[in-house]
Design a binder for these strands. Sequence first.
DNA 1: ATGGTGGATGTTCCA
Length: 267
Amino acid sequence: MSLRIATWNINSLRLRLSRLSDLIAALAPDVICLQETKVPDDLFPAAEVQALGFPHIAHRGMKGYNGVAILSRRPLTVLDGFPDWCGKGDCRHLAVRLEAEGGAVDLHDFYVPAGGDVPDPEANPKFAHKLAFIAEARDFFAARSGFSRTILVGDLNIAPLENDVWSHRQLLDVVSHTPPETAGLTAWRETGFIDAVRHFVPATEKHFTWWSYRNRDWRASDRGRRLDHVWATPDLLPTLRGQITLKDARDWPQASDHVPVAVTFEI
DNA sequence: ATGGTGGATGTTCCA
């Protein structure tokens, strides 16, 4: 059974419902994990999403900011028992179980705090929150040693490798690529995941999923970062079939600043 | 060194 999972920071689901339709046409995903839906649960456009061929929906949203959702062609069960990360109640995580021929698969959708502009946890509470969030996530997964058949995706707001940013040297003190963030994210991943996109794209190759709105000509300047990730437990390695990073989506009308990333499993 | 753009909200915050 083929399972293609896409992740996308959509930066407002209601504003970009027609872009979601474009994503479905371009990638034909079985499951879509969204971040920054920016829609409270009672205003979630469920009927519109279902009309796009995704009858099974889980969402956790709030007014104005954050918000995650998982849209699926196949049945899903929402998983609970997870922390309220950093005790903020701010809608940054959703987990579901998908039934597959080879057994159930657990899927986590994360939206990690961006962390503000100043990479100093003493001076900037947003950066302190970001470091605390990734440490809490690392500790949570570390405490469940031996978990398997698990996929973790999302806008993790950190570019861990040198070629995950346009200039490693110039971004070492820029939030998203500082040593405490990249070390923290790697420690989280190493609790039990492999980087499914870098499994297909060599670490020597630049690879980005986000380009700032503030670059006039994003493609020419190409000052991108790889902030969006797909991880999988190593038992799923033999099921990996490929990845697509839909760079062209950055040129869609009224584009998100993030592009969709999809990984296909034969599961 | 600065400011650049975009979304939700409401006279500003967040990214």
